[in-house]
Amino acid sequence: MMEFILGHYNYWIVIFLMMLGFYTVISRGNMVKKIVGLNIFQVSVFLLYISIGNVSGGTTPIIAEGFTRYSNPLPHVLILTAIVVGVATTALGLALVVRIKEAYGTIEEDEIHDQDQSL
């Protein structure tokens, strides 16, 4: 039982973080908070991939003498690029937030909705 919990703890925390991010995105009205939630979701996906790529007793996948067991390099590559692409897309989202603020004068979803309704 203990072994089962230790072996799946990573995945459960990943799911917990993912759901916290998801909850922030769908329940909070503030745009900046939504983007932070999206980023938490993103980090949880990174953690899932890296956890899957880990091999117990392995080392960083850089070939060196004296090591025979390396962790899986493929998830590392995918996540490495995903992090940089992630910050670029986050910047795009933040740029949209700035434009929304300039157009509506607020970044709260409810107020934007009210302004749209009153038109």
Binding site: T60, I62, L80, T81, I83, V84, V87
Partner: peptide, 12 residues
Amino acid sequence: DYSPGGGFQAGV
């Protein structure tokens, strides 16, 4: 190529 690193990290 020999140690952790590459274009993405260096650029950032």
